[in-house]
Write a protein that binds this DNA or RNA. Structure first.
Lengths: 188, 188
DNA sequence: CTACCATGTTTAATAAATTAAACAACCCCT
DNA sequence: AGGGGTTGTTTAATTTATTAAACATGGTAG
């Protein structure tokens, strides 16, 4: 957990086009404080940091959520690629199957049970919400396009991607398609 | 941005079954420090807070991403109670159905596609991970017990609850049960 | 009931963050 | 060139957090 508070603050401040003094005034601290923090020569109290971030403005959660999470490398998962977790669950009785999509270190997720009529199509290409989404196909087939990758997914197949990448769902079959998905943070 | 650091820390510490002294030792600070922070009588420096959280362990981002969501009041959702979102999605073409489980303000979620053989049963009653979980039944029937509430869920029905509440899944039918769930933060 | 061990709280001494003000460097303008 | 304005940095004084140790409470065994 080596979080570089100083560099992070400087980065954010400059991204907002603020000088140390300008930010200091809006935040109600002195410019010296900002300087020392950015050099990591003092570790601000959270109350100070909160004041500083109020001048941005930005929440503490946003500040520390700068683990610019690299987009997961694997996007499409075939049925057999789902990770079975039942074996690692303690206290289970009988035959239980828990199968996980990818190696998620998820964020806020919205669970969706989606159905697509034959020929149905979502033209959604851009998301302002920085979010991730994933899902599992239950019935039928769906053509999923994510960036420059395209895949036809059938029952048991799954997907997981950063939804800032343009994407699209199309039911190219003649059967209704049913899938269950999750999105983080919630799409609506 | 009124983040209650003290209350938050106390909450987390107790959820992990640690005393102030136990946490202090693991973190490399004194018990008095923990006490004062929890009473909001001192605002820790982020370096101190980082040390404390390392004893949990927990990242700063996770710590501040605690918009203490009150446990959702509704636990069981009948098929018809799922919230249809397709109408609010812009740019869709054709017949698309997006149905959401509850009014989630989710956190880190783990997506699971679960199957239960007839008679299968999870005896899991306690979770140390503060987490939420939810899911949708795809096939078969499952008896879900959450705290003092019990419900038999069939295809299309769903659930959503705070998994710190003792809970249990039982397939009481003669058919295999299949459901898709999500858990936040990841269970394993 | 008493002794003991764990818990959280408080207090004076110490260490560290924050301030206020001065310093140095840079750019722009006349 | 030389002001006037800005930038970020530094330094001594002050405020605040942190420590170490004592205090108070609660439960439990003997």
């Amino acid at each position: 957990m080596d979080f570089d508070v100083g560099t992070r603050l400087k980065q954010i401040r400059e991204q907002h086009g603020l000088s140390q003094r300008a930010l200091a005034q809006k935040a109600g601290v002195t410019n010296g404080t900002i300087s020392l923090i950015e050099q990591n020569r003092s570790s601000p109290s959270v109350s100070s940091l909160r004041k500083v971030l109020q001048g941005i403005p930005m929440t503490l959660a946003e500040f520390f959520s700068s683990d610019d999470l690299p987009p997961p490398e694997q996007i499409f998962f075939k049925n057999s690629e789902l990770v079975e977790l039942a074996g690692e669950l303690k206290g289970t009785v009988g035959k239980v199957s828990f199968r996980q999509v990818g190696d998620l270190r998820g964020r806020n997720l919205q669970i969706l049970h989606e159905r697509y009529a034959p020929g149905a199509d979502t033209g959604r290409t851009m998301l302002q919400h920085e979010s991730e989404e994933g899902g599992i196909v239950v019935r039928g087939q769906i053509e999923l396009t994510v960036g420059d990758r395209k895949e036809l997914l059938g029952p048991g197949d799954a997907y997981f991607f950063d939804s800032r990448i343009p994407h699209r769902f199309r039911n190219v079959g003649e059967e209704e398609c049913e899938l269950i998905s999750a999105c983080t943070p919630p799409y609506l």
